[in-house]
Design a protein around this nucleic acid. Sequence first.
DNA 1: CGGCGGATTGAAGGGAATCAATGCTTGTGG
DNA 2: CCACAAGCATTGATTCCCTTCAATCCGCCG
Lengths: 255, 255
Amino acid sequence: MDVETTLSERPRYAAAIADDVLRAGNRLRHAFLQKPMRFAPPDEPIVRLTDSEPPVILIHSGFVFRCCVLGDGRRAILNIAMPGDFIGLDHLVLHRATEEIIGAANRVGYYALPPSELWSLMARDQAINRKVVTLLAEMRWRSDRLAASIGRLDARARICVMLLDIYERLPRNGLNSGLTFNLPLTQEQIADHLGLTLVHVNRTLRRLREQRIVLIERQTVIILDLDRLRECAEGLPQVAELVEVCRNDRHIPVL
Amino acid sequence: MDVETTLSERPRYAAAIADDVLRAGNRLRHAFLQKPMRFAPPDEPIVRLTDSEPPVILIHSGFVFRCCVLGDGRRAILNIAMPGDFIGLDHLVLHRATEEIIGAANRVGYYALPPSELWSLMARDQAINRKVVTLLAEMRWRSDRLAASIGRLDARARICVMLLDIYERLPRNGLNSGLTFNLPLTQEQIADHLGLTLVHVNRTLRRLREQRIVLIERQTVIILDLDRLRECAEGLPQVAELVEVCRNDRHIPVL
DNA sequence: CGGCGGATTGAAGGGAATCAATGCTTGTGG
DNA sequence: CCACAAGCATTGATTCCCTTCAATCCGCCG
């Protein structure tokens, strides 16, 4: 593998702690599952900026994103999370959220754990502690990747990277992994995530459709030509080592 | 304070753990200071992609950045760190670096701690553990902020945000805090950091100079009009609460 | 001196934003 | 059941920020 392709591969975890972290991940999930499931209707933020002591969240169903609104009213979506993902780990150290956490389109089911409980869990169980550190590092890697993607790729490549990323995260989270999957995001939300405008996302999707690479209709993504999709996403190309990643990070689906 | 300005303020840490973390930060630094100081000549990476088991680093002198090269040879600089900053905390959980860590322009002095030693430190000392989690969360916030900045602001605003950010981090790290400071980055590196081209950075700097807002000459930044600089950086405006941040995060300078 | 990396500037082109108008679904209420 | 509104998707025309290509200049160093 080429040294140049680094930001593209998913990070690989040190072997010594991999299995350890794997099992700890399941214990961590288990702790969340003890909590009652909550639901957020669409358009109802899960975490608001005004909330004090916001919880850490494990998503059960539906897509969720973190977003912030800029001075001029424009919006930036920093992170898209799907069932099985944790979100809001920053709340471990922040007494107020820095971004809102909002459900996308459909109804969201989730488990919420207060930071204090997670801290004591981490203090008692060193492996869970490592899992949390691992999650934080992975999210940082993801944020960096987004910044590089927005800064250095054109609209077409950015969209392809995003779609491939979601496509490859789905099976990790125990979700359907076919070439067709559900993506409950509006084009405006995609635009806000990728630093584009709604209009330009639309045009770019049309071109991808005309070239028979990928088809997005309503909220369904159909990958028509996976190889060419990968080509388009090159620059920061995709996952070379899904196998090892799965070994290190697979978990019991929460669904 | 406006709810809309969130990603702009530095994160505020939960009061309960603030002092705790403050003292732990100094213990953490102390652990790094036990190591022999190392030096990296300019153009000599501190951490390479090929390194296995890369260390965590505390910077003593000089500026340092993390960067990755894309498929087409273009580069993305994801993070700029200055004396007093930690870098490479991701190496706690990665057995190979995802990005190179490179010194900028001048000679870099640093302390390096193997991940295994940091882990045992964290296991022994819960407060240090919290400090590390806090640092990781802060870096993620910084990465998110960069992504939002590149995605939603124009060249002028991006540059102003970057300059203000550095200007305000300097005193936190025990460095000179006047309106004039040293910025050992080439225009090309600034461009790679902000998702622009060298040429356009140059033009934008010229306009900022003509408007008598900020002057960059050689590697010296002179802020001519701090208020207007803040105006330009609006959108994700700057630090509203430097006081609280300092209280929570000031540390003994390592110089 | 010559070479080199960085900075500067001009001219031309393109990708994306903006402005604006029109469909298309969906949900709501009369 | 239809009318209507609202939100999202689609498309065209125009503008402009930024890139690309190219040339020059400057300070530095062997």
